[in-house]
Design a protein around this nucleic acid. Structure first.
Lengths: 253, 253
DNA sequence: CAGTTTTACTGTGTATACACTTTGCCCTGT
DNA sequence: ACAGGGCAAAGTGTATACACAGTAAAACTG
């Protein structure tokens, strides 16, 4: 706000634009900004202590990402995702991840990467070992490992173009894992579901190692049915609407 | 530049940002800006007569689109696409169009849209009728019709999310049709190739009408092999390097 | 003569000021 | 009381100014 550099630096991110981008995305995904709500630049500038220019840049990026939609008279509003659109986004992501897996298998995956993938799967298995109900900490560990696996797959075909596209698809309408965590309390067979998911992870790695392109793709797509199923069972539960205040849903898989 | 409204209006586009976006994209795709070249904001502002702010907004958009890449020290440079990346982009596009076709078939396509698709295919057939070699005008007409068909497919599943993603994939490293047009002179079997392509279009429409999701997807993917083959045969020709100065290649299909 | 340091310039990142558009509210007239 | 027009306020789009960083070139020193 002042011309001083403001060295308080709650976050040591380099640029104001990045700060604004992260903050705004966080606010949207956390539901602080209601879907359909208009984002006033002056208001956001005041709220974040960042001037209008970086805010504006961040808004343009978020529109390009699909989280915001332009308003006729100018400016942006928070995009409201329908359930069908969430289903679509799951499909898109699954399809692109399948493509990435197939290309990776066809072109061959570096041994180091194969090992990293195998390690990742093993680590997830360790997290899921035992019979006790899934604690939040263990679930969080699963989410981390899962995210890592999917990142590795996205980059496995060695193509920046593919990686970007997959990443974009993954960022789409999947909101914070919080929503799902709370839903976990409702789902009794979470452990079983996640073990199944990791078994599929392992199968994908094997297909990659065997350079079986079509199989890698099919397995990866099949894997995507888990989030879809999670979504449906989650929605079937009557208490959901209350559990998830902003209609942001999330379904890692 | 001056504070006057500048009512000359060579193009009656509403906003400076849109003007800048279109102009810059055109310049990049036409090869006026060499791949790897840094885009200086002041220079572009001077060249276009638009001030830095809209230029900057356009640059951010183009980066998000993937045509520009950020430079460490700030600013952007024109993204140079390798042949492998062009192949990847074709695959991505084919995969997403396949998805769109499948979803559309599964969910059912409105009769009006089916009719529009059929009309589109018929129109292309008319363009391709006759035995004379393909003139530039007829080829341009084909390109138009083809683009229209693919747009319709992208929107056929009725999902904004899917449509956006497909559109983005299509915009990726496919440059102006000019490159291909010039290559046409080299390819003697162009007419045959395009007829085959349109036959595939028709098959896709039939699959959509019959609500055969898997078939629609497979056909659409198969359809994508045409640009890929065009790319390979084009590259195989020795005179290509000379014909296409900036390594921007394009392969409509 | 070569290496290093300093200086100047170019260019981005950011802030702010200004103009124009749109929208909502109020007042007036029928 | 309702409708239409006008006015005011808020907000975007755009331009421009300023500060800091990076880079390249030139000059100075060893």
């Amino acid at each position: 706000m002042a011309s001083a550099p403001i060295p308080e630096a709650a976050e040591a991110t380099s640029s104001q634009t990045v700060r604004a981008l992260l903050r705004l995305r966080e606010m949207i995904l956390a539901g602080e900004l209601a879907p359909g709500e208009r984002l006033s630049e002056p208001v956001m500038a005041e709220a974040t202590g960042i001037s209008r220019t970086p805010i504006r840049t961040a808004l343009v990026r978020l529109q390009e990402e699909g989280l915001l939609e332009p308003i006729q008279s100018g400016g942006f509003r928070v995009r409201a995702f329908s359930l069908d659109e969430i289903r679509d986004a799951i499909q898109i992501r699954a399809t692109l991840e399948g493509l990435s897996a197939r290309l990776a298998a066809e072109r061959g995956v570096a041994p180091a990467l194969l090992e990293a993938l195998a390690d990742c799967v093993d680590q997830i298995d360790e997290v899921l070992a035992g019979d006790e109900a899934l604690s939040e900490a263990r679930f969080a560990a699963y989410v981390d490992g899962n995210a890592r696996f999917h990142e590795l797959i996205a980059g496995a075909c060695g193509s920046e173009v593919v990686r970007r596209q997959v990443e974009r698809a993954m960022a789409l309408p999947f909101a914070s894992p919080n929503g799902f965590l709370r839903v976990q309390a409702v789902a009794p067979d979470a452990l079983h579901t996640l073990r199944l998911a990791n078994a599929q992870h392992r199968a994908v790695v094997e297909a990659l190692a065997g350079r079986e392109g079509a199989r890698a793709e099919a397995l990866m797509r099949e894997h995507a049915r888990i989030p879809q199923r999670n979504l449906e069972t989650t929605l079937a539960h009557p208490a959901i609407r209350e559990l998830i205040p902003g209609a942001s849903l999330i379904v890692p898989g």
